[in-house]
């Protein structure tokens, strides 16, 4: 059973192993967040809620919020917005983008997959485009709290592999809690329901099996009806 802690709860006296979500005071490790203690390696408190703050190297799904030459301002489901410089696009296509024509490449509300290249002290976030797959058509976006992403992926990817197999969908999970699902309409509906179920029950054990049962029973119902 997972142990839930609140801010200020005493966790351990092994100060050397204090990790994320904890703080040290007078030789003791305390919880900094409302979450679940993980003492397997470093002593961490995995937050149950909170806002996503990007770090370099994160791959996320963003939505164009503003066009402000020479940048696209991108909403990344964070208290901070990010920027994508137009040279990102020009490099890929060998063209020069004129003022006023940026929207021909990326328009407001377009979704992009991007990598966080830099986060500076002033919280200016620079993105670089990743064009591994198309986010424009034939799929849908699901948003869950970023804290639940590891659960949707599962240990060594066990959960997401099962979702992809049983729902027969392309599923991409971004660090900032945004998930792109592509497949047939009813398959996407099933995947969406499963993902939201995982997010709401992420703190329970035996979840992978329960979700597998849930998906199987759905399939059985479909075959009968």
């Amino acid at each position: 059973m997972y142990k839930v802690v609140v801010p200020g709860d005493f966790i351990s006296e092994t100060v050397s192993r204090a990790g994320e979500g904890t703080y040290v005071e007078d030789g003791k490790v305390y919880a900094l967040r409302y979450g679940i203690v993980d003492e397997r390696g470093e002593i961490k408190v995995v937050a149950l809620s909170g806002k996503y703050v990007p770090t370099e190297g994160d791959v996320l799904i963003g939505r164009v919020a503003e066009i402000s030459f020479p940048f696209w301002i991108v909403d990344i489901a964070s208290p901070y917005e990010a920027r994508l410089h137009m040279s990102e696009f020009a490099d890929a296509r060998g063209e020069k983008i004129e003022f006023g024509s940026m929207n021909r490449y990326l328009d407001l509300d377009d979704l992009i997959v991007a990598k966080v290249m830099n986060v500076d002290v002033m919280m200016r976030i620079e993105l670089a485009l990743k064009e591994d797959f198309n986010l424009r058509s034939g799929g849908r976006l699901i948003e869950i709290p970023y804290t639940k992403v590891p659960r949707v992926i599962g240990r060594s990817g066990s959960m997401i592999k099962m979702l992809k197999d049983k729902c027969n969908c392309f599923i991409f999970i971004a660090k900032n809690g945004r998930i792109w699902v592509r497949g047939r309409e009813d398959d996407m509906n099933l995947a969406t329901e499963a993902i939201l179920k995982i997010a709401s029950e992420s703190h329970t054990s035996g979840l992978t099996d329960r979700v597998a049962d849930f998906l199987d029973s759905f399939r059985r119902e479909k075959r009968r009806g």
């Binding site: 305390y30 900094l32 409302y34």
Partner: peptide
Amino acid sequence: LADAGIPMKDL
């Protein structure tokens, strides 16, 4: 505040 996931030293 705890429910919102705000990092705090104590309640």
